[in-house]
Amino acid sequence: MQSYLEFDFKINPLNPWNEILMAELIEIGFDSFTEENEGILAYIQKDIFSEEQLENVGILHREDIQISFTYHEMPNINWNEEWEKNFSPINVEDKVLIRAEFHDPDPTMHEIVIQPKMSFGTGHHPTTHLMIQQMLEMDFEGKKVLDMGCGTSVLAIFAKQKGAAEVTAIDIDEWSVENSIENAQRNGVELKISKGTAENLGNEMFDIILANINRNILISDIPAYVSVLNNGGKLLLSGLCFFDVNDILEVCTSQGLILENKQQREEWISLLLKK
């Protein structure tokens, strides 16, 4: 079993900065969180924690937010078992149910069955919910799809279930890649799953690209996405707060993308764009 560090972050004001802090911590290896009244508890494997990376987390240095933290090493426990205990099914508009095998099925809804390991993207985060919401209205039949930052591959699986001809799922985290392979098998779909970033895209072209990541990575990688997106293709983005919209749209417009739909859930947004 892995040794973990528990960080107790106190955040003022709490919203929406608790969610934003979690998104930034995921990028440096934190893999599970508990929301508290005054902040969050965040967990990372001891052997991959880097004080330098934590020091470079941008939100910790904002003058309009007060964030303090303490941390200590946790005793060795079965973290996947603990994670499963706290995993509840996710209902998207009474149309899609994201659940684990130990939950009861619902024959009235479209189901995605995942093993709730500690990879981001189980569906509980509002941005994953927003992506599924947008995907419900999109045509995937016969399309080539790319899911960047796939996490548990919930989005990639849903795209394949909606009729996509071929789906590629990429994530920088080895844990997410392994979990994605298991979840694809669990749902009886075939995905092309690999570890990497936008730098590994090559020349393969796609009809639809899904990217639920975060503002900074999206701003950096949107040109790479556009370069492998077919003319008339769709780019669906989330991992963004409402105040990120102008910055993201400025980049998208410079790349010749046209905004087709924007949706918001709490302080989070998703953007559907067309090339």
Score class of each variant (00 low, 15 high):
residue 108 T to N: 15
residue 90 I to C: 04
residue 147 D to L: 03
residue 141 E to W: 11
residue 140 F to I: 07
residue 129 H to R: 11
residue 145 V to D: 01
residue 117 K to S: 04
residue 160 K to E: 03
residue 58 G to A: 07
residue 59 I to C: 01
residue 97 L to E: 04
residue 166 E to K: 10
residue 106 D to P: 05
residue 121 G to L: 09
residue 134 Q to R: 02
residue 74 M to V: 12
residue 137 E to Q: 05
residue 143 K to Q: 11
residue 47 D to R: 03
residue 74 M to S: 04
residue 83 W to L: 04
residue 126 P to S: 05
residue 98 I to P: 08
residue 162 K to E: 12
residue 132 I to V: 12
residue 92 V to T: 09
residue 92 V to K: 08
residue 145 V to S: 04
residue 104 D to V: 06
residue 43 Y to G: 02
residue 148 M to R: 09
residue 96 V to Q: 06
residue 60 L to A: 09
residue 92 V to P: 07
residue 116 P to K: 09
residue 152 T to F: 15
residue 120 F to E: 02
residue 113 V to K: 06
residue 87 F to M: 05
residue 83 W to I: 10
residue 117 K to E: 05
residue 97 L to N: 09
residue 147 D to Q: 02
residue 158 F to E: 02
residue 52 E to F: 08
residue 101 E to W: 08
residue 128 T to Q: 11
residue 167 V to I: 06
residue 161 Q to H: 05
residue 145 V to H: 03
residue 144 K to H: 14
residue 94 D to H: 13
residue 100 A to I: 10
residue 50 S to H: 05
residue 83 W to S: 06
residue 62 R to I: 00
residue 47 D to N: 13
residue 83 W to E: 05
residue 147 D to G: 06
residue 92 V to I: 15
residue 158 F to G: 03
residue 137 E to V: 01
residue 118 M to E: 07
residue 107 P to W: 13
residue 45 Q to G: 08
residue 61 H to F: 12
residue 148 M to P: 00
residue 84 E to H: 09
residue 147 D to S: 08
residue 48 I to K: 15
residue 148 M to A: 01
residue 71 Y to Q: 03
residue 166 E to F: 12
residue 163 G to I: 10
residue 126 P to T: 03
residue 82 E to K: 14
residue 162 K to Y: 12
residue 79 W to Q: 03
residue 51 E to T: 10
residue 98 I to L: 12
residue 122 T to N: 04
residue 74 M to D: 00
residue 143 K to S: 11
residue 51 E to S: 14
residue 168 T to L: 07
residue 130 L to R: 07
residue 65 I to Q: 01
residue 112 I to K: 08
residue 137 E to H: 10
residue 84 E to C: 02
residue 70 T to G: 15
residue 125 H to L: 06
residue 53 Q to A: 15
residue 74 M to T: 14
